[in-house]
Design a protein around this nucleic acid. Structure first.
Length: 254
DNA sequence: ATGCCTCAGCTCCTGAGA
């Protein structure tokens, strides 16, 4: 079974690239973030022609997430039960016996800001919910755009970006607290090249200079850990004309 | 350097992203 996550930064703009990518990488599940479109504009037909069913949770202008799958998605849930939120950030479903959660974590903008407080509250809400989900679904994947780096290895300039957004102790504490529920950073289960990132700023030739962050993650539960055989970041789409600023992350399970 | 790109929208500037 192959799963992937990709923040596409507008599905309207990126749909051709998503279809190309799926043709080359026929994963079983693809979680998308930052659709930036409403459900009525979601390209169900084009994806169906490519062999994918889709569950979407759209929103105008910002946010919006979806789960694409070859097999039917069961027990679909939108956002975090028990956490009131007017933004479309989370969609989950059971696919091929695996509970899959696709999420677009809040950006947080700047430490100390209102948006930062919202991010920390959101993270707490997610954690309280995922704790219960894990009890009900031992085989669980939580993947998406986390907007948090684990540590310096995920940051192109750790000294210069110390304590800035995505790199603060508060955010990293919440990420470790998620891990402590019984999850694993699938990417670090395998040998990876140094300076591996999943996002590069559009500005200042960020990608060309590999000035990036690893903020897109796939966390897998204890029960799935022994089944993981590979986890990679695919930088290929970042080389496209008009790319998303994020690259897809792929997980292979036995 | 409160900028640099990119995207959406009550679109020719602004807010947000990260």
């Amino acid at each position: 079974m192959k799963l992937a996550t990709w923040n596409v930064n507008s599905l309207t703009v990126r749909l051709p690239q998503v279809l190309d990518w799926l043709a080359t990488n026929p994963v079983d599940v693809l979680a998308l973030q930052e659709l930036k479109l409403t459900d009525d504009k979601f390209p169900f037909d084009a994806l169906a022609r490519a062999g994918y069913l889709a569950q979407c949770f759209g929103q105008k202008t910002y946010n919006g997430v979806a789960l694409l799958s070859r097999a039917p998605a069961l027990d679909v849930v939108r956002n975090i039960p028990g956490f009131a939120d007017d933004m479309a950030r989370v969609i989950s479903a059971t696919i091929d016996g695996v509970r899959v959660i696709g999420a677009y974590f809040p950006n947080g903008q700047e430490p100390g800001s209102e948006k930062f407080d919202y991010k920390l509250n959101w993270l707490k809400g997610l954690r309280d919910w995922v704790r219960e989900e894990l009890k009900a679904h031992p085989k669980l994947v939580l993947m998406g755009d986390y907007n948090i780096t684990f540590d310096d290895a995920d940051v192109w300039d750790p000294a210069g970006l110390k304590d800035t957004i995505h790199c603060t102790d508060e955010e990293r504490y919440e990420l470790r607290a998620l891990i402590a529920l019984g999850l694993h950073d699938a990417y670090r289960l395998f040998k990876q090249a140094d300076k591996s990132y999943s996002w590069w700023d559009y500005r200042d030739f960020g990608f060309r200079r590999n000035r990036g962050l690893r903020i897109d993650h796939i966390l897998i539960s204890d029960a799935l850990k022994p089944m993981a055989t590979a986890c990679v970041i695919d930088k290929t789409p970042r080389k496209n004309e008009r790319p998303s600023d994020h690259a897809p992350v792929l997980l292979e399970l036995l």
